[in-house]
Computed example of a mutant assay.
Amino acid sequence: MMSSMVQDKVVVVTGAGGGIGRDIALAMAREGAKVVVNDIGASVAGEGKNEGPAQAVVNEIKALGGQAVANTDSVSDRAAAARIIGTAIETFGRIDVVVNNAGILRDRFFHKMSDEEWDSVIKVHLYGSYYVSRAASAHFKEQESGVYVHMTSTSGLVGNFGQANYAAAKLGIAALSKSIALDMQKFNVRSNCIAPFAWSRMIGSIPTDTPEEQARVDRMKQMTPAKIAPMAVALASDSAKDVTGQIFAVRNNEIFLMSQPRPVRSVHRGEGWTPQTVLTHALPALKKSFFDLDRSGDVFNWDPV
Score class of each variant (00 low, 15 high):
residue 297 G to Y: 03
residue 167 A to I: 04
residue 136 A to G: 10
residue 278 V to Q: 05
residue 35 V to Q: 12
residue 207 P to H: 04
residue 255 I to Y: 06
residue 163 Q to E: 12
residue 89 I to W: 00
residue 71 N to E: 03
residue 125 H to M: 12
residue 72 T to W: 00
residue 135 A to M: 04
residue 62 K to I: 14
residue 301 N to S: 15
residue 231 M to Q: 11
residue 237 S to I: 10
residue 263 P to N: 00
residue 86 G to K: 01
residue 244 T to I: 09
residue 167 A to T: 05
residue 79 A to K: 05
residue 54 A to C: 13
residue 289 S to G: 01
residue 267 V to Q: 08
residue 220 M to E: 08
residue 215 A to M: 10
residue 171 L to A: 10
residue 125 H to N: 14
residue 301 N to Q: 14
residue 255 I to N: 03
residue 89 I to T: 02
residue 241 K to E: 12
residue 247 I to N: 06
residue 231 M to P: 07
residue 22 R to W: 03
residue 135 A to P: 11
residue 112 K to V: 01
residue 82 A to H: 05
residue 41 G to H: 07
residue 45 A to V: 05
residue 92 F to M: 03
residue 138 A to I: 12
residue 299 V to T: 15
residue 202 M to V: 10
residue 286 L to A: 05
residue 157 L to R: 04
residue 127 Y to K: 11
residue 69 V to W: 00
residue 48 G to C: 06
residue 50 N to A: 04
residue 180 I to H: 00
residue 289 S to D: 15
residue 91 T to M: 00
residue 271 E to N: 13
residue 286 L to H: 06
residue 242 D to C: 00
residue 120 S to T: 13
residue 242 D to G: 01
residue 136 A to C: 13
residue 199 W to V: 09
residue 31 E to H: 14
residue 174 A to L: 04
residue 20 I to M: 08
residue 126 L to R: 09
residue 125 H to C: 10
